[in-house]
Design a binder for these strands. Structure first.
Lengths: 337, 337
DNA sequence: TTGTATGCGTTATCAA
DNA sequence: TTGATAACGCATACAA
């Protein structure tokens, strides 16, 4: 029969000291005599005492854990953000707990509320639901930082990737390796995709003689890419692009599969392909895909930094900011023969 | 200037009632007059009161959140388990918080300890580090259920997939569709893979005339699969298997890519391929892969059920159990022409 | 260096 | 139906 977990006063009694002293050795706050410390420590070990974090944060009025509400954990990009956030938090002695909102706005709300109720030190939200104002208000005092969500930043701090730059990098790479007829594939209904296209257009504009064609896809999955690829295969050499900028790796993968199956076009000889995101799928494909790697970890780091900043300055004196992180070009076989 | 969040007593004062009454409307515990309830509720809304879960669980002596320490969130299998666990927990009015141990034994320990300190109602651990005894002890009173880890179950409840059955299902499917020369690819250093092979052997043994060959791979990644595929391509028609059971989808994907690139062998006409896990990669491949789908969600459900059971009966009177969940065959184009 | 006492925001018990 | 009050386990300020 296992009794309820021992408390500090149990430890104090066993060690023959006061609870204040036990608390001191636990936290290293005040100076405590080596002999006393030892007594306390052996009492702790003997009783199998584990300090109660609940009582701890109630008494201290602060918590040492951060909450991260993630919209899509199956996307490795968000996991990278979580890794970065975890590392940065760890450096500040904070733990990071995750919650999977799984594309559901209701769940997102539920978990944000949960973290607020649990009075975590701060909340990260990887969201595309609700306005930032809503998120800020739902924080109700506990600082919130939004990650990877478009919008303004007057009410809440946010960290986003520079999608425009990513598009620019992708197109510039293709152009600098001699490509002149670019096809951008993706759906511009998605804001990030729209931004990527903007960057592609900027790169093209810088190079007279380079042409750009935009092919709208319903979504950015493999099957959408296959359709784009099938379309390209059917074209004559004159109407055919010599490079494809896909708005996402899965899309690029579909294009690649289609071209490879047709066996009439070679990658990258006839058509170069570059994706976006650096999914695992990108480096596992038959021809490894060049891509734009999202600055996931960096975003996580920056987001927690923002949180810590707000934690230090307090709600007043804190000015909400927007931090932008730069993606990076990753060159693989699909763009360089 | 935002002041500290209002407490129950602030609400009580604003509503002109006692804190006990506020607590009652908050929890619906005792009967409270409609008029009083209304006063309290408008005070809550007016002050923007959010109840303090920390004080709540300290006073109540119980928490309504579960912790799940996951070894590899980038594996969608574990995410499925989390989904199942979340659903089951939600049904019992519990929330599920996640922690990513990211293959690190130290992190796993840290997060288990954190959850114990925070006195969550129960802990799920998807682990392959440490013995189950260790895990049980580290729970220190809060119930722990281990998920997807081999070993005995005398000290802690556990839920595992039936890998032997999975292997059996895969091989039986191939045999029943006319294949007679099976090649099993994988590394038997991994216990789950070894179990899958056992099932394959059982199916083969049931069908005299069917041959089985085992090819050891260093790992179960795409590149390992490519090597297997390259090997198959080089063989003559007489030494060549007519079906491949890959221990994992990525492995199967590599085999597929190799065969497709060679364009001398057709899938599934010449060689059928079946994978394991039902990764996204499996349905996105050029020829959609048949596979064995892990019972992830079911495992999550069962794990939380075990936790709830232990929660109800208390530490005594609870007998630790091992629950096994059955994987399912998913037939796609790679095994049926 | 150590002990004592108060309060953190709830829940829960008992009176009113 | 409501109010008063004692825990819950700890941190912390202050006294010794």
């Amino acid at each position: 029969m296992r009794r309820a977990s021992p408390s500090i006063s149990d430890v104090a009694r066993a060690a023959g000291v006061s609870i204040g002293t036990v608390s001191n050795v636990l936290n290293g706050t005040a100076r405590v005599a080596p002999a006393t410390r030892e007594k306390v420590e052996s009492a702790i070990a003997g009783l199998g005492f584990v300090r109660n974090g609940v009582a701890r944060s109630l008494a201290a009025g602060r918590s040492s854990t951060l909450g991260f509400v993630i919209i899509d954990l199956s996307n490795s990009y968000f996991l990278d953000i979580a890794r970065g956030a975890e590392a940065e938090a760890g450096g500040a002695g904070l733990n990071l707990l995750l919650a999977n909102s799984d594309m559901s706005e209701a769940k997102q709300r539920t978990y944000v509320d949960l973290f607020v109720e649990e009075r975590v030190a701060g909340i990260l939200v990887a969201a595309n639901h609700g306005s930032r104002q809503d998120l800020h208000r739902s924080g109700r005092g506990v600082p919130v930082v939004v990650v990877d969500a478009p919008g303004d930043h007057t009410d809440v701090c946010a960290v986003v990737p520079d999608n425009e730059l990513g598009g620019y990098l992708a197109a510039s790479h293709l152009i600098s390796t001699g490509r002149r007829r670019l096809l951008f594939a993706g759906t511009t209904e998605l804001v990030p995709v729209r931004d990527r296209l903007l960057g592609v257009e900027r790169a093209v504009a810088e190079h007279p003689g380079v042409e750009l064609e935009v092919e709208q896809t319903g979504n950015v999955q493999v099957e959408d890419g296959r359709r784009v690829g099938d379309d390209i295969v059917l074209r004559g050499p004159r109407e055919r692009p010599d490079a494809v900028v896909a708005a996402a790796d899965l899309l690029a993968l579909g294009v690649l599969q289609s071209l490879l199956l047709s066996s009439s076009l070679r990658v990258p000889d006839d058509v170069a392909i570059i994706g976006y995101d650096d999914n695992r799928a990108a480096w596992d494909s038959a021809v490894p895909l060049s891509t734009i790697r999202q600055p996931g970890e960096e975003i996580g780091h920056e987001a927690v930094k923002l949180l810590l900043e707000e934690l230090e300055t307090g709600p007043d004196g804190h000015r909400h900011r927007l931090v932008t992180c730069e993606p990076r070009l990753v060159v693989r076989a699909s763009t360089t023969g």
